[in-house]
Design a protein around this nucleic acid. Structure first.
Lengths: 211, 211
DNA sequence: GTATTCTTGTTGCAATTGCAACTAATATTT
DNA sequence: AAATATTAGTTGCAATTGCAACAAGAATAC
């Protein structure tokens, strides 16, 4: 990216001194926020991870989205008319930056550097979000489990500049990410191994064999 | 949204007078842009529509994303390592706003109102994009065709505040949007009709029957 | 350091789905 | 106004997939 904003540096640098930007810690399983009331809230995961959970009319819950470090979320990004209740739950001890959409318009009283730097950094975070959502859509659109796996493995391989790569999550989460049944996925991974497309080096470390 | 920027008014108001923001017209099937070279380009569809097409190694093409009026796109939003060639093609006579990511940082010489208003309006456009991508991911994640259809129909119904709604595109495009085979989808729509879940009023006009 | 939870791995079976291959009906171009 | 392209609608069939139900290993919590 063009500008030299770095979320990592930014989050290490200081505890928010801005009156418009909160920095909160959450324990595992604590509710970080809900998407029930519209308060134009935006959050950034500085440390830890969280799940966006939907409780539907029957009371069953499902994970709608998973947020990891430096992911941005909030009901601002989820303008979907639905009567379901949505909660964001910390999956582990987490540190979250919470602020309101209006920081785009209103400067804070102190006109602080924290506020200013966040504004500079936000576009990149949102752009990254769009990019990863788009990637996931492409993968979810593939018709077969094999296609999804191979396409995703290729991307991981290209991103790591190597035929060997490590999954960013567990195999169980991979199945959720690709929207497929875990056991069916395991079966397909087995076939891919047997047919010589991939080699499994470790629990979630693979090598793509070209052909 | 909080601020009162309105892309519709904005696009009608004036032809871009800003040296940093181009406004171009394209004929059907013309190439609007490519995602091959990184030039931090951002585009907005003011009129018309366009498809993001991928040409893979075998030469077959597939539609990765579809853009309609007021959608925002550009290679900035597609930081995915892949060797494939990506083109955006006008699907009809279209008017497109084209500018560079650096308008966030650099003001133009004239310090013009066009530039300034665009900057105010951009966040909302991107947020809408995130929202619609997230919705599509939720739908694509559903395991069965029936689930995808019912979930989408419910959203359309809730958005139009009525049990009766019109699809924003053809049935063929609906199948693509939901990542399913069109004939299988038609079969499922037929079952939904027979089982009394929906009523088909017209080519792409349905009523959700509650139960 | 034991218990509990989470993850991986596997399989049979039934259900769902994609594919191919059509026809008919609309739209769009020329 | 005719020709071409796009969309809707169907169906048989084979292949893929989800589901259920396990067992065993690994990681985490207490």
């Amino acid at each position: 990216m063009k500008n030299n904003f770095n979320i990592e540096e930014f989050s290490n640098k200081l505890v928010s001194s801005c009156e418009k930007i909160q920095q909160k810690n959450f324990e595992k399983n604590e509710i970080i926020t809900t998407y029930i009331v519209n308060r134009n809230q935006i959050c950034i995961v500085l440390e830890g991870s969280a799940d966006l959970i939907r409780y539907d009319f029957n009371g069953n819950q499902m994970v709608v989205e998973k947020f990891k470090q430096y992911d941005i979320f909030g009901e601002v990004f989820y303008k979907i008319n639905t009567n379901n209740e949505l909660f964001v739950i910390a999956k582990e001890k987490s540190k979250i930056l919470i602020f309101n959409y209006d920081i785009f318009e209103k400067k804070c009283k102190k006109n602080c550097k924290f506020h200013e730097e966040l504004l500079i950094g936000l576009p990149n975070l949102v752009i990254s979000k769009v990019s990863s959502l788009t990637l996931r859509i492409e993968l979810l659109s593939k018709k077969t489990i094999r296609d999804k796996l191979i396409s995703y493995f290729k991307i991981l391989s290209e991103n790591s500049f190597s035929k060997t790569f490590t999954l960013p999550f567990s195999l169980t989460n991979l199945a959720d990410y690709l929207g497929i049944d875990r056991s069916a996925m395991m079966r397909e991974i087995k076939s891919l191994k047997e047919e010589g497309f991939i080699k499994k080096l470790d629990k979630n470390k693979f090598t793509l064999l070209s052909q």
